[in-house]
C-alpha cells in the first residue's frame, strides 16, 4: 500500500494550496474576508486563529466553494478551483478533505459506511447504492481505522460512538478521499480538553504520514502553538500575522483578539 502511494506521489506535483486575494462579502460593501492571500505546500500544518465571527469558517468553506467567494482565486496543487462548477468542481472537491466541528457524520450509518463516504466522489452512483466499493478502498479503510484505534467499531452505527471517536471517523473519511489538502474547521471545539489533544495528534500525524498539507481553524491558541508549524492570525477579515508559533507574541494576540485580560 505504501509503495503504491509512494509511486503515485512521485508522479504528481507537490500537493499545495494557494489562496490569492480572496474576498467574500455576504452584503455588498461589507466584506467578511478582505484580500486574503497565503500558500501552504508539502508537509506543513497551518493553524488559522482568530476570534469567533471573524470569517475563519467562511475562509475554509470558500476554499472548496461550499460558499462561493466574491472574488479572488484558490489553487489546489496548481488547479484553479474558483472558476469551476458542476462536475469539474465535484472532481476538484475530491482533492480537498474536510473535517468538521460537529463531525457531520451520517448518524444512522455504520462507521465503515461513513469512512467509505470519502470515496463517494470516485465511485459511481450505482456502486454507492449497492455498497460495492473497490476492494482497494475497503482495504485502505480497514487499515486507516486500525491506525486510529477504531478497528473494533467497524460495524457500529456512528451514533453509538463518543465525540472523540466520531471525530476520528470524520478524519478517516477525509483521508479516504486521498486529498491534496486537508481542511479542519474547529475540529476540537465540541470535545473535552484531553480528547482535543488526542484529535490534534491524530490529525497532524495522519497529515504527515500521508503527506497532506493541513489547515486547521482553531480558536485555542495553545493547541495551535503545540501542534502546528505555522500560524495565520485573522482579525476583522484580514491576515494580521503569518509566521512560526515562536514569533507569535502577546502583542500579536492582542491585535488578533483584542483586550489583554485573558492573556494572563
Amino acid at each position: 500500500m505504501t509503495t503504491r502511494t509512494g509511486n503515485a506521489l512521485a508522479a504528481q506535483p507537490e500537493r499545495s494550496l494557494r489562496v490569492e486575494h480572496l474576498v467574500k462579502a455576504y452584503q455588498p460593501g461589507k466584506p467578511v474576508l478582505n484580500d486574503i492571500s497565503f500558500e501552504v505546500r508539502g508537509q506543513n500544518s497551518v493553524a488559522i486563529i482568530g476570534p469567533s465571527g471573524t470569517g475563519k469558517s467562511t475562509l475554509i468553506r470558500c476554499v472548496n466553494k461550499l460558499i462561493p467567494p466574491t472574488s479572488g482565486a484558490v489553487f489546489v496543487s496548481g488547479e484553479n478551483i474558483s472558476r469551476l462548477s458542476g462536475r469539474a468542481l465535484r472532481h476538484a472537491r475530491r482533492k480537498i478533505g474536510m473535517v468538521f466541528q460537529e463531525f457531520n457524520l451520517v448518524e444512522r450509518l455504520t462507521v465503515m459506511e461513513n469512512v467509505l463516504c470519502g470515496r463517494l466522489g470516485y465511485v459511481s452512483v450505482w456502486q454507492a447504492w449497492r455498497r460495492t466499493y473497490p476492494q482497494d478502498d475497503i482495504d485502505r479503510a480497514f487499515a486507516l481505522l486500525e491506525s486510529i484505534g477504531l478497528a473494533d467499531f467497524v460495524h457500529q452505527r456512528a451514533d453509538s460512538l463518543s465525540g472523540g471517536q466520531r471525530q476520528r471517523v470524520g478524519i478517516a473519511r477525509a483521508i479516504m478521499q486521498e486529498p491534496h489538502v486537508l481542511l479542519a474547521d474547529e475540529p476540537t471545539s465540541s470535545l473535552d480538553p484531553k480528547t482535543s489533544v488526542e484529535i490534534m495528534e491524530v490529525l497532524v500525524q495522519l497529515s504527515e504520514v500521508h503527506r497532506i498539507p493541513l489547515i486547521i481553524n482553531i480558536h485555542d491558541v495553545e493547541l495551535a502553538r503545540r501542534f502546528t508549524s505555522r500560524i495565520i492570525g485573522l482579525s476583522q477579515g484580514g491576515i494580521v500575522f503569518d509566521g512560526p508559533p515562536a514569533e507569535l507574541s502577546n502583542d500579536h494576540l492582542k491585535t488578533i483578539y483584542g483586550g489583554e485580560a485573558w492573556l494572563q
Binding site: T110, R131, Q135, I138, A151, V154
Partner: peptide, 12 residues
C-alpha cells in the same frame, strides 16, 4: 481479521 488476503466488508 481473516486469514484471507483482503478484508471483507458487507453492510448486512
Amino acid at each position: 481479521m481473516t486469514t484471507a488476503d483482503h478484508y471483507r466488508w458487507q453492510r448486512f
